[in-house]
Amino acid sequence: MQIFVKTLTGKTITSEVEPSDTIENVKAKIQDKEGIPPDQQRLIFAGKQLEDGRTLSDYNIQKESTLHLVLR
């Protein structure tokens, strides 16, 4: 499924993921596309910071959901 990751600069990254993918996994995909190390990434969805060990389905993230990427 496709999800969108919006950066603070307003850029939107499209990523191909599975509901069973972990947040860590998603951060790795963002690193592949943007070159941002996962340890600098914080992903936010519905006002919550997403934890690395959890999966997209844990957070009820569905296709075409938009996550927000904040850098630390």
Rank of each mutant, 00 (worst) to 15 (best):
Q62H: 10
L67H: 00
R54V: 06
E64I: 02
I30A: 03
K33F: 08
E34W: 15
Q49D: 15
I30P: 01
G35S: 06
R42W: 13
M1G: 04
T66G: 02
T66V: 14
L56Q: 00
T22Y: 08
G53A: 10
F45G: 01
I36L: 06
G10A: 04
L8Q: 14
Q31F: 15
T12K: 07
Q40D: 10
E18Q: 13
I44L: 12
G47R: 04
I13M: 07
F45P: 01
K33N: 06
R42S: 12
L67E: 00
L8C: 15
R72Y: 12
T7F: 15
M1H: 05
P37Y: 05
N60M: 08
E34I: 15
T7A: 05
T55Q: 08
R54F: 11
S15A: 15
K27T: 03
R54D: 04
R42L: 15
V5K: 00
Y59E: 03
A46W: 08
P19R: 06
L71C: 07
Q49R: 09
M1K: 03
I30Y: 02
T14Y: 09
S65Q: 08
V26S: 00
L43S: 00
D39F: 11
F45K: 02
L69Q: 02
D58L: 03
P38Q: 14
D32T: 10
T22G: 03
Q31L: 11
F45D: 01
M1N: 04
K63N: 15
Q2H: 11
F45S: 02
H68R: 08
E16A: 08
K63D: 14
V26T: 02
M1S: 03
T22F: 08
P38V: 15
Q2V: 15
S57H: 10
V17K: 01
D52H: 05
P37E: 08
M1V: 07
Q49C: 12
G53H: 14
K48V: 14
I30H: 02
E24H: 11
I44F: 15
L69W: 00
I44Q: 06
I3G: 00
V5E: 01
M1W: 11
I61P: 00
F45E: 01
E16L: 13
Y59C: 01
T9P: 04
S15M: 15
H68Y: 15
K63L: 06
F4M: 05
L67I: 13
T7E: 03
Q62S: 10
Q41E: 02
S65D: 14
E18M: 14
D32Q: 14
Q31P: 03
V5H: 00
V17E: 01
M1C: 04
I36S: 04
I44E: 10
E34V: 15
E51N: 06
A28Q: 13
E24L: 14
T22W: 05
Q62F: 11
G10H: 04
P37C: 05
I3T: 00
E16P: 05
Q49E: 15
E18K: 14
Q31K: 09
K6C: 11
Q62N: 10
D52Q: 03
K6Q: 10
D52N: 10
E64W: 14
L71W: 09
I61F: 02
Y59W: 01
E64C: 10
S15K: 05
S57K: 12
T14R: 10
S20W: 14
K29Y: 11
P37A: 10
T55L: 09
L8P: 15
L56W: 03
G10L: 03
E24M: 13
T7P: 05
I3V: 06
D58E: 11
K6L: 13
T7K: 04
I44T: 09
I36G: 03
G53E: 10
Y59T: 01
T55K: 10
V17W: 05
L43I: 06
K6N: 05
G53M: 08
P38F: 14
E64F: 15
K11Y: 13
Q49F: 14
A46H: 13
L8E: 14
Q40T: 09
K11D: 07
K29A: 07
E34H: 11
R54I: 07
P37L: 07
F4T: 06
Q62M: 12
T9S: 13
A46S: 09
Q41V: 12
P37G: 06
P37I: 06
V70P: 01
K29N: 05
T22Q: 04
E34S: 14
D58Q: 07
D58Y: 15
K27N: 02
N60K: 10
G47S: 04
R72K: 13
K29I: 12
S65C: 04
T14M: 12
S65R: 02
E16N: 12
V26I: 11
F45W: 09
S65I: 04
E64D: 14
N60D: 09
E18W: 13
D32F: 11
M1P: 03
T66P: 02
G35C: 05
T55E: 03
I36R: 03
F45Y: 13
A28Y: 12
I36A: 04
K27L: 12
S57V: 07
V5F: 09
A28D: 06
T66Q: 06
T55M: 10
V17N: 03
K6D: 04
V70D: 05
T66W: 08
T9M: 10
M1A: 03
T7Y: 14
H68W: 15
D52M: 04
T22V: 04
E18S: 14
D32K: 13
D32G: 09
Q49A: 10
S15N: 08
V26K: 00
V5A: 02
I13F: 14
L56S: 00
H68G: 04
R72V: 14
D58A: 06
N25H: 11
P38S: 14
L67F: 04
I36H: 09
L43K: 00
F4D: 02
Q62A: 09
D21Q: 05
K6M: 10
V17R: 00
N60R: 07
E18D: 12
V5T: 03
P37T: 07
K48H: 12
T14C: 09
V26Y: 01
S65E: 07
Q62G: 12
G35T: 03
Q40P: 02
L71P: 08
K29E: 04
G35M: 05
S20D: 11
E34R: 05
R54H: 12
A28C: 07
D32S: 11
I44C: 11
V26Q: 01
